[in-house]
Design a protein around this nucleic acid. Structure first.
Lengths: 339, 339
DNA sequence: GACTGGCACTCTATACTTGAGAGTGCCAGA
DNA sequence: TCTGGCACTCTCAAGTATAGAGTGCCAGTC
């Protein structure tokens, strides 16, 4: 495609993101050094429109980019804008003195929201290679037992279940047996062992050991990556003018965590360090057709890995947002690996 | 105050909540069996306005209630509206098959949001009488140790800290010592014991045992009640017309959990089973001056106790909302006590 | 052949006007 | 103490006029 036409598209996207009003040919030649007349730009605009990169709200208005226009802009025209010194410093300072995984995720989400001024989403890191480190069983009294599973990643799960009339001794022997059977194994292998044990249990064992095994299987099957933390929701306030198309659908999507996880999962594959951008319709979820997602994986697939990103209206500042998401993903990823 | 004037105020609040338009004298006598003429109602309205219960958007518009008017309505005029059969059934069904405290809180918040059609807030239950049940120490390798504190309520906390060059044997002896010193004690007493031990530790012990004690003190000091879960945010979509006064401030308040906790804490005192209502300015937080909070404590102060509630615009359906908050608080409270 | 200036045309956004309607306040009378 | 009536006020919706921004196209120039 013509070099100048690309420059025109770039200029329109940039101006439109800043002003949120249709961009006319005259305003464009004034604000950018295009070295040709407005009439020439008009020809280029008409041609870009014919190819589907721009539209018209009505006959005599300026142009606005289409999703296809944004896509071309992101793929070929946007130079990733480096973060400011203040932003870099903010990233480093934000992680000082973290203690546990909850803390890391919640700080990351706040950081991302603050830098991008958008709604930020951070998935809890998962680890395919996580192993069972320890299983603890504690009597809660009244025939209830608390089971605690600790993974090698430091992730801790807990659940209580019924085990009528158990003694401390019985609990101790169960604890020893289950630890011997699972500790050091990967989560997948431990699940296998327990399923086999559950199938082999005879009927009168089922009531007692079966309850324990079922609870443990539930806990190990729970995917920590099914949890996400969300922040910066008040940033949606800026887009009140597009309430129906942006604010409302985003609020609903955030409440429906299933949709959210699906969007993250489809866009970013483990190990892929690139920033993924889904513009408007591309995300395949109709209510979000006028919003974009900018996402990236963070961490490493061997140890702990997950997805983080940002949601906002399609008319967002892609260069800055992409740079911010990339920087945060890199930094937090390195941080996770160092411990 | 005149019986009829109270009836007029009740009618105006009811109609205003339903229509969200100023209520005129003529419409009022038509919709309610007041048995007097519109002119008489006008006199009552003028008098109610003089006393501060109503206002005027402008000279020739109908009346709308003031915060003071809502307050009188809630205190003296609203008959708590019983829940529908469907709603009662929903409450019972919502709690089937819960397994842990996270699950209870998240179900409660969804339930409350669904019944009230407002934004729901549920604080994690705290227990003043919680005791230390068990403390577990696990080596994470590379000089790091994971400490896990289990309380008698079943609440589990975890944190990792540095303990360079530790052996399994050292960890085991630390574990035995710390369990012997704290298990069975209330959290307050355990904190006391550890602070004393920390003060008595000589300088070369500080590096090793001190790190452990500091981590444990941190974990025990952490108030589980400082966590809240929020749901039903998309319900704010209905109030888009009042974006600046309602939607935006509520979103910001929800993000600032500190403010949220303060509001909950000020309105509801442990053991108080009554539903507390804070209308407009009463909540003392300027941005929320046109929203109301309807809150209640749940659980029992002896075992586990916390606050739950609902935020919405001052023009909310108080009878239904109060009834719903009360019913959910009662049900979940009973549920908590049974196990 | 690519670019430019000029011009007629289109459409929006804004301000202004107008009339209907709803509601009030007040007064005189029951 | 209540009521019907009436003048007055203010909003809201619809209609109208106008300025301004922008386009599309064409004839002319380099």
């Amino acid at each position: 495609m013509d070099e100048r036409k690309l420059a025109v598209l770039r200029a329109i996207v940039t101006d439109y993101v800043a002003s949120h009003g249709p961009i006319g040919s005259k305003a464009l030649v004034e604000r950018h050094r295009l070295e040709v007349s407005a009439a020439t730009i008009r020809n280029d605009m008409a041609s870009l429109e014919e190819e589907g990169y721009l539209t018209h709200p009505h006959t005599s208005a300026g142009r606005i980019p289409t999703d296809k226009g944004y896509r071309l802009f992101v793929d070929r025209l946007a130079s990733v804008k480096p973060l400011s010194v203040a932003e870099r410093r903010a990233i480093v300072r934000f992680m000082e003195g973290v203690c546990d995984i909850d803390d890391i995720v919640s700080r990351t989400v706040r950081l991302l929201a603050q830098i991008t001024h958008q709604v930020a989403i951070v998935q809890y890191p998962v680890s395919v290679s996580a192993r069972v480190r320890h299983i603890e069983l504690l009597s809660l009294g009244a025939g209830r037992v608390l089971a605690i599973v600790i993974r090698s990643t430091g992730a801790v799960e807990q659940r209580s279940f019924e085990l009528p009339d158990h003694s401390e001794a019985e609990l101790a022997s169960l604890r020893d047996w289950v630890n011997a059977a699972t500790v050091g194994k990967t989560v997948t292998d431990a699940l296998e062992v327990m399923s086999v044990a559950l199938n082999e249990a005879v009927s009168d064992e089922l009531l007692r050991v079966g309850r324990l095994l079922t609870a443990l299987i539930d806990m190990l099957s729970a995917d920590p990556g099914a949890r996400v933390m969300v922040g910066g929701v008040p940033n949606l306030a800026r887009f009140n003018a597009e309430y129906e198309t942006t604010v409302k659908p985003v609020l609903e999507m955030l409440e429906e965590q299933v949709v959210l996880l699906k969007l993250l999962g489809e866009a970013v594959k483990p190990g892929d360090g690139e920033v993924a951008v889904r513009i408007g319709d591309e995300n395949g979820y109709v209510p979000l057709r006028s919003t974009s997602l900018v996402m990236s994986g963070y961490g490493s697939p061997e140890s702990a890995w997950a997805t983080l990103g940002v949601v906002g209206p399609t008319r967002m500042d892609y260069p800055s947002t992409i740079a911010a998401v990339q920087a945060v993903a890199n930094y937090v990823g390195r941080f996770l690996q160092e411990g």
